[in-house]
Design a protein around this nucleic acid. Sequence first.
DNA 1: TCAAAAGTGTTGAGTCTACACCCATGT
DNA 2: ACATGGGTGTAGACTCAACACTTTTGA
Lengths: 272, 272
Amino acid sequence: MNSEQDYLRGYSMEQFARPSVTTDIAVFALRTEGLDNFRKDPVRRLSLLLVRRGEHPFRDCWALPGGFLRMDETVEDCALRELKEETGVPPAALVYTGVFSALDRDPRGRIISNAFICVLNEAPPPMAGSDAADARWFDVDFAPAADGTFSLVLTSGDVTLTARLKEARTAFGTALHETSGRSALAFDHAAIITSALRQLREKAAAFELIFDFLPEMFTLNDLQQAQEAITGVPVAVANFRRKAAPFVKETGVMTQGAGHRPAMLFSKKTSS
Amino acid sequence: MNSEQDYLRGYSMEQFARPSVTTDIAVFALRTEGLDNFRKDPVRRLSLLLVRRGEHPFRDCWALPGGFLRMDETVEDCALRELKEETGVPPAALVYTGVFSALDRDPRGRIISNAFICVLNEAPPPMAGSDAADARWFDVDFAPAADGTFSLVLTSGDVTLTARLKEARTAFGTALHETSGRSALAFDHAAIITSALRQLREKAAAFELIFDFLPEMFTLNDLQQAQEAITGVPVAVANFRRKAAPFVKETGVMTQGAGHRPAMLFSKKTSS
DNA sequence: TCAAAAGTGTTGAGTCTACACCCATGT
DNA sequence: ACATGGGTGTAGACTCAACACTTTTGA
């Protein structure tokens, strides 16, 4: 009768073939433009942080920040570490998005990736990390078409990355596949980004994750601008305010010198 | 200037430490009782398939079916293969649930698990697979308490498995942790089951996955019984029928000889 | 005849959308 | 003064929970 201790002493994981495990993080923030115009609201645009790969494979392609899981960290830990190494900015939120385990997703071999959504409440000038030749914020233009197809366009100055994706039936459920060959995005990152964006939009519409895009205190207009920038769906002002009401609480503080009537500043209501 | 081909030829994953990857599958079905009473509706109960481990670690504990990922399969493939090996029954639905990557979740070493929900439209007598000493259907009793705590009770004849779980803050978001030491469930499977159950309930309430518990054609009462058994929330009949209407279509066929007024049989409406 | 299931109608409370309207401010 | 954002009120459509009610069957 051998004991569990005996068993474990004799056990070695090394005898079995194992895949590598990575995390990839879709880092989102809102970038603001038009702060110069005192009277007009600045325009917020949803932005995604990408790094240009300095090494093979997919050298010079743009990719999500991420990297290999170490043996002493959970997937969340790994995402946070990679994030720190690549951006240095503390994330406001980090949520798990899904696994990507297609056999051919990485030419180096069997590599399974765990995708995360990360939200920052500011968009700091990106610094290129260790493996990256460059790092930039890209404007996100994402539109689902009627036929279950998605078009993803990422723009940063002179660089434009385009991908068209299709939702294809798998054995059970569906998976995203890139059509029309490879885009300028590395690996299956176009599919990961699409998946992340869909989740982000869904959550933002339900007043989840939006507060992480904003500072502690914000006006209801800020909140509405943020939601519209993320979801791409405009809402009538009065209706938005009523919908947002259960999720926010007044701070008593008002904006000053904004060129208009002062607005109440709100903060996120903690206990739902 | 070396090429990507050159790079890949020289690359070996073996040089890096890697975790093992597994899948665990929460197989759900509805079991029916009281078919003997002609006049009364049979009672449906949500059931979960567990196997008793025949090997270390956690020998003789009850666990979710599952196993190690092979190098030639995706996580979904792996779940389907393990499912086939353990039950032999074709699943009606299989959906991804999440990763579990805590450092100490498996005493054999660093093993990361991908959890799935599987739904069967019948509950066949379970057969013990290769590694399992036994396999059984357990009745599920799951109740969230007010303080963010969950109590999970699984019953199969003389066997009762109990676990109490707490939702604990992680760096970002929350994770489930089992309180009061180890239950009779292996590994962190109590947490995986809890996570799966919450997702299942949420989906069932939104008329997702419930149809996979039923045959092609069913009465609205069948559907309501199924939803109530899964979510644990009763609904008034008239209201349920109105809520269900957008998701079903009439078949024109009626039940016969059921001891009552014949009922219309419905099927799932495909195009939403 | 009657218990048990099948199925419908109504009512009152609440929510959502569109739209019209007034308020406060800096230039 | 006026453009611009801040903020409120309301009518009509729609949704939702509770409840009362009629119909049909097999024993």
